Measured scan of single mutants.
Amino acid sequence: MAAGGDHGSPDSYRSPLASRYASPEMCFVFSDRYKFRTWRQLWLWLAEAEQTLGLPITDEQIQEMKSNLENIDFKMAAEEEKRLRHDVMAHVHTFGHCCPKAAGIIHLGATSCYVGDNTDLIILRNALDLLLPKLARVISRLADFAKERASLPTLGFTHFQPAQLTTVGKRCCLWIQDLCMDLQNLKRVRDDLRFRGVKGTTGTQASFLQLFEGDDHKVEQLDKMVTEKAGFKRAFIITGQTYTRKVDIEVLSVLASLGASVHKICTDIRLLANLKEMEEPFEKQQIGSSAMPYKRNPMRSERCCSLARHLMTLVMDPLQTASVQWFERTLDDSANRRICLAEAFLTADTILNTLQNISEGLVVYPKVIERRIRQELPFMATENIIMAMVKAGGSRQDCHEKIRVLSQQAASVVKQEGGDNDLIERIQVDAYFSPIHSQLDHLLDPSSFTGRASQQVQRFLEEEVYPLLKPYESVMKVKAELCL
């Protein structure tokens, strides 16, 4: 049975990233139509530049190519590739079939990587351009969430054990800070992308030097003109047959890092959902379990974690691919890159769409948070109580021993009897502590235990987050809708 299948058929496997999760716009960027249309555009740009620099290419040939950029006979191309065992030459023939007058000058002087690699770089750039505003929107939604809850005390956790208090907004800023680093890295790697350009079979530009009869300047002009037509500021000066596969490492490393950030955020949300302090959106008709109707599973956060793990592992592909590119190139890269580049971007696209949807509907339960604080705060307040007693004339050592005994009794009630923490009640009825009984409410005010959390939130948002989001103001209103 021949390899390949009808990918629109229910009898043929289709990647869930495309069929179930990723956005239509990201799927289109990695589609065959987008790819092969870009090949034709690159052939047109090459012909236009070659004509401008004096090669015998007519206006009629150029116009014929322009008129057929979208006229792609995919069936013919597939048949040609089956016959020739070469995808680029299959599309040269297919393009030439609908451009008979231009057929002889299509791909003039070029090698397969002229269309293959340059198209990949265009796709990487455009895919990054799709991700950047999506990530900015996630940051914006979380920034709104953090600002609104900047002063809401909550129990902090280290080692997932109760620690000092923080605020809900401050905790959210930990998430935002990681995503801001990801946004900066995505922008950097996007701006650092260079075009492969017009380089020939081993990167020496020998074929173009021959076409222009040894004119170095025209060869350099050709490279520059096509690079500018493709919208790049610069091209690699040095290439082998391909652009260095280190570029793929750079791009997928940034995406993998984004995956790590999203995994951490969504894990926190899942843990908070278990504590009943916070939940992701839950639709009115949504079913959490087929057997347990009360369940409210954090399905979206779980999906993000599941896909983020996949995204983090994909960076190993370009690392290994770059390491086995012998001399000017081997074909070890080809099949692998067809999979890992598309999957990385479709996965990143999915987790950003999902995280935006989550961040637009996060639900906080202040009463649950308050109750958990009441359970733990008495123990945390013991040092403040000791200091207040010393100020009232008591002995630190005597007070410490009193607190120690009462704390152990209260802990026994919590752990052995399943009761509430009654340390404060014990202190309130103990005559030894009568000098500070009137101060206990103040000493137990949760806001006095959150330090500068709310001020940190305000400063972080104003100095770091809002300036970073400013270039994306025009796209901030787009909502994230999930079908599944």
Rank of each mutant, 00 (worst) to 15 (best):
D6H: 08
S9L: 14
D11Q: 13
S12Y: 15
S12P: 00
Y13L: 10
P16V: 06
F28I: 04
D32A: 12
R33A: 12
Y34S: 06
Y34K: 02
K35R: 03
R37P: 11
T38R: 11
W39H: 12
L44Q: 12
E48P: 07
T52M: 05
L55C: 11
P56E: 02
T58G: 12
E60H: 04
Q61S: 04
I62S: 07
Q63S: 04
L69R: 02
N71F: 13
N71V: 02
F74E: 15
K75N: 06
A77I: 08
R83G: 06
R85K: 13
V88F: 06
H91D: 08
V92L: 08
F95E: 12
F95W: 08
C99Q: 12
P100L: 06
K101A: 02
K101F: 11
G104A: 09
G104H: 15
I105W: 00
H107F: 00
L108G: 09
T111P: 11
Y114A: 01
V115C: 08
N126K: 10
L128I: 02
L131R: 11
L131N: 01
P133I: 13
K134V: 12
A136G: 10
I139C: 00
S140K: 15
S140C: 08
F145S: 10
E148A: 01
P153F: 01
P153C: 02
T154S: 02
Q164K: 00
L165K: 11
V168K: 01
K170S: 02
C173Q: 01
L174T: 02
L174M: 14
W175R: 06
I176R: 04
D178W: 03
L179P: 01
L183E: 01
N185I: 01
N185D: 09
L193A: 06
F195K: 01
V198T: 12
A206E: 01
L209M: 06
L211Y: 11
D216W: 01
D216A: 08
K218P: 10
K218F: 11
V219Q: 01
Q221K: 13
K224W: 00
V226Q: 01
V226R: 06
A235I: 02
A235M: 07
F236E: 04
I237A: 12
I237M: 12
I238N: 04
G240R: 05
G259W: 13
C266I: 09
D268N: 13
R270D: 15
L275H: 15
K276P: 00
E277C: 01
P281T: 07
F282Y: 11
P293A: 12
N297T: 13
N297F: 07
E302T: 03
R303S: 09
S306Y: 09
R309F: 11
L311G: 07
P318T: 12
S323E: 09
S323T: 13
Q325F: 06
S334A: 02
N336T: 07
R338F: 07
C340P: 07
A344M: 00
L346H: 00
L346P: 05
T347I: 08
A348F: 01
D349T: 09
N353D: 13
V363W: 04
V363P: 12
V363M: 02
V364R: 07
V368Q: 03
I369A: 12
F379I: 12
E383L: 07
I385Y: 15
M387Q: 15
V390N: 08
R396K: 01
C399H: 00
C399T: 09
C399G: 09
R404C: 07
S407C: 07
Q409K: 02
A411V: 14
S412Y: 15
S412V: 14
V414Q: 00
I424K: 14
Q428M: 09
F433T: 12
P435S: 12
H437W: 03
L440T: 00
L444V: 05
D445N: 05
D445M: 09
S447G: 09
S448N: 08
R452Y: 04
A453E: 14
Q456Y: 14
V457F: 10
Q458M: 08
F460M: 00
Y466G: 10
P467V: 15
P467K: 01
P471T: 11
M476F: 07
K477E: 10
K479S: 02
K479T: 14
E481Q: 14
